[in-house]
Nucleic acid binder design. Structure first.
Length: 500
RNA sequence: GUCUCCAUCGUCUAGUGGUUAGGACACCGGGUUUUCAUCCCGGCAACGGGGUUUCGAUUACCCCUGGAGAUGCCA
């Protein structure tokens, strides 16, 4: 039997790291085994489901490169794949469970439920439904339904015995039936199923062979098995994935920082970096390899290498991966990703003029290895496309020097630049390199003569030109900015320093 | 409260009944360098505790402790 797995998110918020980790693992598993990966939308919570969340789901999957074989808009004979479009099925099935005595209608108000929950909490008793309606006779129940009373349908969880399931990762696990959530709601007042019912019905109907989901679902595993049994179905194989935690060891959530994929995208992460990093959360290949492309993962992934313990999401390591992938990226492709970011900040026009493009191309090589995030390009190159002002003039003063000495160093630099040849066009790489070298030589020579460290000579200049203590290499920066503009900024800083 | 799961460096992890317990990130040094970054070299750093089995347990079993999750008409 060929593998069929699914990712079944509920469109109630942005896709987050935990969710896509589950999606990815399912996807890898399907691909590695020649199976099918199915996308199912679990929108049975009508209060919280939103079209925006749905849109985010699709764009996230696409951005990451997860292609589903079956799902909304891609019928594989098991549709529809949106649960709200399967409403009747759940109602019918729930009714079936009532007739077979495996479930019963419950008329308790949510107010009453709140009250008993409070009482249980106060008494430090175990919390759950008190099965008040379980004993109602079918006739009475029917009558109340006919009278128009609101009701839910609850599963009749056996009072005795034990329900277990085999988990591929954890082995056999389960709990005593008396410890299972007492008679959980399977069909809500609004006629929609809860997760428990819908997931079982659909996984069965859609021929799902392996349920791969996060470990937070372990406690309801036995409950689901009970539902399968109530229908007389055989449960699929279970495989509970270790959870993804924040730095504090708690389940990863917003308060740990960015957790939605769209945030990472917005902040300048590459999908290949995110995929690679996330794939290593709870899974590993061997003791050394850690770079994996989507294709690699789709062939190398295996369940045996998943481990049991939760993994902390390490933002620093993700950053490192991103830097690695940024440097591996095809230069032309990377440029096309960077330009819109500059345009987005209003630093260049959109589309870029040929002049802007020329300057950017010239700058590309010197910023490339400095990028950790795509967005880093903006602060790095801002000075090239707009006057950054003076910045913090204090930063222009090298260690063990004062303002007037810094000004003197600047004047020396100014003079050298005044004598400099016009910089070549940025497209002539050899000439540019040569120009940079000539300048470097002259500055060193001068610094030596003046008994200055080369750094002390260049640091004030850096601040003058870029308004920042850190910048791309200085001579290329000056060359790209142009001598006139550079000199203007240098003069301005000299004046400022003299007045300090 | 009850139930369930988990436990190797700070983090992600590899690993084995006998290993100097390996790698990566982070961190700290050093080198390259014009600042930053890259790159290179080096360092720090772990089997939670107690028992049992065993000639020998980080590895198997039990208990404890610690952490997490579930306990919704959310998934």
């Amino acid at each position: 039997m060929s593998v069929r797995v699914r990712y079944a998110p509920s469109p109630t918020g942005l896709q987050h790291i935990g969710g896509i980790r589950t999606a990815l693992f399912n996807y890898f598993f399907a691909r590695a085994n020649g199976g099918s990966f199915i996308l199912r939308i679990e929108d049975t919570d009508r209060e919280r489901s939103t079209p925006e969340a749905l849109e985010d789901l699709y764009s996230t999957l696409e951005w990451l490169g997860i292609n589903y074989d079956e799902g909304p808009g891609k019928d594989g004979g098991f549709g529809p794949y949106v649960q709200s479009e399967r409403e009747q099925l759940y109602k019918d099935k729930a009714a079936e469970l009532i007739s077979s005595g495996k479930a019963y209608p419950c008329f308790c108000s949510s107010e009453r439920l709140d009250v008993i929950r409070e009482e249980q909490k106060a008494a430090k008793k175990s919390i759950g439904y008190d099965r008040y309606c379980r004993g109602l006779s079918p006739d009475e129940a029917d009558a109340r339904i006919k009278a128009g009373e609101k009701y839910v349908i609850r599963l009749k969880v056996p009072l005795e015995g034990k329900t277990v399931f085999d988990d591929i990762i954890l082995g056999q696990t389960g709990r005593k039936n008396k410890d299972i959530n007492p008679d959980p709601v399977i069909l809500k007042t609004d006629g929609f199923p809860t997760y428990h019912l819908a997931n079982v019905i659909d996984d069965h109907a859609m021929g799902i062979t392996h349920i791969m989901r996060a470990q937070e679902w372990i406690p309801s595993g036995p409950l689901h098995v009970l539902i399968y049994e109530a229908f007389g179905w055989k449960p699929p194989a279970y495989c509970h994935l270790p959870m993804v935690m924040g730095k504090d060891g708690q389940k990863l959530s917003k308060r740990h920082g960015s957790t939605s994929v769209s945030d990472f995208r917005k902040n300048g992460y590459l999908p290949e970096a995110l995929v690679n990093f996330v794939s290593l959360l709870g899974w590993s290949y061997d003791d050394s390899r850690e770079f994996f492309s989507m294709e690699d993962l789709c062939s190398l992934f295996s369940l045996e290498k998943i481990n049991k313990s939760p993994a902390v999401f390490d933002y620093k390591k993700l950053d490192w991966f991103n830097g690695q992938y940024l440097r591996m990226k095809d230069p032309e492709e990377l440029k096309e990703m960077l330009l819109p970011l500059l345009a987005g900040e209003g630093l260049i026009s959109n589309p870029p003029s040929s002049g802007e493009r020329g300057i950017f191309n010239g700058a590309f090589n010197i910023i490339r290895e400095r990028l950790k995030l795509l967005n880093d390009v903006v602060p790095m190159l801002r000075f090239l496309f707009t006057d950054p002002g003076i910045g913090n003039a204090e930063d222009a003063i090298p260690k063990k020097m004062d303002a007037s000495e810094a000004a003197k160093a600047l004047v020396l630099g100014e003079k050298l630049l005044l004598e400099a040849a016009d910089p070549p066009d940025a497209s002539d790489e050899d000439a540019c390199e040569a120009w940079d070298e000539v300048m470097d030589g002259r500055f060193r020579e001068k610094a030596e003569k003046e008994k200055l460290k080369i750094g002390a000579m260049l640091q004030p200049l850096r601040l003058a030109v870029t308004a920042s203590k850190v910048s791309p290499p200085l001579f290329p920066a000056i060359r790209l900015l142009g001598l006139d503009e550079s000199l203007k900024r240098i003069k301005r800083l000299i004046d400022t320093l003299k007045n300090m």
